[in-house]
């Protein structure tokens, strides 16, 4: 109880925990669609593609207002997604290569800009890199409000186009035959995913963002086969990972928040992969062993000698 009171009283703790939980909810919901569409690494690619946008936004406006930098990040992510889809469509380069190309080239260009900015010795640039490499501890209340607003927008978009996104995830050919423009729908869904990624950059950073989108979705998929429930469970798993990661990192000195969130998430995913009813691997193994033990007797009883 006293810990809870302390939790409510401590500004940093409250801000970081709330921000991480918000990130978990949004990326859980949007990540579910990415995983169901077998685009689990899209988040990885797009989060790296955000870097040049953040730097260019800073270079052009000279401010560090979160809204401006995040807008830059979003535009750059979106351009990365467009480049990815165009390369896959227009050339003979396969999807995985195109992903690696967009990821590394956008990021490399961003690094050029970032080092260019920092060499100019601008005092205002300090802290620009926390937008990318994630330092949840630097979150302030203003960031959490921005994250909450963006998260509500993203989830509202999913609620609004729920039917269309569901169709797109499970049967895009059927969606086309019903007259939906699947290209445009895919772009819309990617744009909403960009919002989720932008929320995560400052908390867990570009590298770990991939797991924030994939982890909750994979865990949730283990517990249910219905999309609605999967989204809810993924949001819960994401929030739980964010919250517990933030709390663990705060409990001891020198524990970075982003990696702790990812490690908590990985633990949740492992438990789900192993012990979820029906799809859990642990039951699978036990079932198979049971069957193998019974097999020979059944064979001889039914078929006699081979």
């Amino acid at each position: 109880m006293s810990a809870f009171v302390e939790f409510l009283g401590d500004y940093t703790l409250r801000t970081v925990a709330l921000g991480s939980a918000l990130l978990g909810v949004t990326s859980g919901v949007l990540g579910s669609f990415a995983v169901l569409r077998r685009q689990g690494l899209l988040g990885d690619v797009l989060s790296h593609a955000a870097l040049p946008g953040v730097c260019l936004a800073f270079l052009l406006t000279g401010t560090r207002t979160p809204a401006v930098l995040l807008a830059g990040a979003a535009v750059s992510c979106w351009l990365g997604a467009a480049a990815l889809f165009r390369v896959v469509e227009e050339t003979r380069i396969s999807e995985d290569s195109a992903m690696g190309i967009v990821l590394s080239v956008f990021f490399g260009f961003g690094i050029v800009l970032l080092t260019f900015i920092s060499k100019r010795g601008d005092a205002a640039q300090a802290g620009l890199s926390t937008y990318l490499f994630g330092q949840a501890a630097t979150l302030v209340w203003e960031n959490v409000v921005t994250m909450a607003v963006l998260g509500v927008i993203a989830i509202a978009a999913v609620a609004l186009w729920y039917k269309e996104f569901k169709l797109l995830a499970f049967d895009p050919e059927f969606a086309t035959s019903l007259g939906y423009n699947t290209r445009r729908l895919g772009l819309l869904l990617t744009s909403v995913t960009v919002v989720a990624i932008v929320i995560g950059l400052q908390t867990v950073g570009v590298v770990l963002m991939a797991a924030m989108l994939v982890g909750p979705a994979v865990a949730a998929r283990q517990w249910t086969s219905r999309l609605g429930r999967m989204l809810a469970i993924a949001a819960a798993v994401g929030a739980l990972a964010g919250l517990s990661g933030a709390l663990i990192s705060m409990s001891q000195p020198r524990l970075p928040t982003g990696p702790m969130i990812i490690l908590s998430l990985t633990a949740l995913v492992l438990v789900s992969l192993l012990f979820a009813p029906e799809r859990g691997l642990f039951w699978d193994r036990r079932c198979r062993r049971g069957r193998r033990l019974r097999r020979p007797a059944a064979d001889t009883a039914e078929e006699g000698a081979p």
């Binding site: 995983v35 689990g40 690494l41 994979v218 283990q222 990696p259 990812i262």
Partner: peptide
């Protein structure tokens, strides 16, 4: 239980976080 991209997306961030 999961596709190739999801498997990669789970493993390397976990290793990197570690």
């Amino acid at each position: 239980r999961l596709g190739e991209q999801s498997a990669i997306g789970l493993v390397f961030p976990a290793m990197f976080a570690l």
